[in-house]
Amino acid sequence: MNPNYLHDPHQGEPTEHDQMLQQLEQDLSVFRQEGELSLPELPPRALRKERTIWRMFSLGLAGSLLVASLLFALSLLLDPPSSPYAVRSQSALMVNGAKWTEKQRLPFDSVLQTTADGSCVMTVGNVGAATLTGESRVQILSPLDAYGDGRYRLMLDYGNLEVYVNAPAQAFLIETPWFQVWDLGCHYELQLDAEGNGSLAVFSGAVRWQSQEQSVRLDAGESLTILAGQAQTN
């Protein structure tokens, strides 16, 4: 046994090797705490528990806000931007075969139809506006550069479409089964029936009419007659 090992005061008497230890205990006992000190007591446990609950609630709230912020940021990253086509005013408008009564954005690939006395004015992002009048049908196509620089597209099957574009050239493209109409910064009107007969009139700016065989540029004040999808240039 280690002769210097200390005895435990709660485990029996000290050995003969602990004489100095006993003397030290006696001499240093003057520093021992006698009676109670005037120290403040800790708050009651109930109060501490209440504070703990409040702290947990605060932490939970902060955590929830953090998670919600992360989810929102993630949804912005993952979700594509919504369609830029918004109906400003309309009458007798049918979208995908159902009557359209709300002023809200039109989803891509939706088909718009107006009757003979109907009309629809829609804004196209910050590019311009398109007005559909009379018995017409158009389909909203997704942009050429998906979510890119705003080359918006409409497919005109038949009817009257008036277009205002206040953006750089070639920002807005009208397609038909026979040809395309590119804006060059302009205001124009395109009329077309189901057989590909119609006209194109330019009121301001310029427009490029283009099919697989032909390409015609029209400036303000000029117009073009279209027969069976072919431009009549004479």
Partner: peptide, 14 residues
């Protein structure tokens, strides 16, 4: 706090 005051007091003596 009183419970541990004596321990802290003795500790400070070191």
């Amino acid at each position: 706090m009183q419970r541990h005051a004596a321990t802290m007091r003795a500790y400070l003596h070191a």
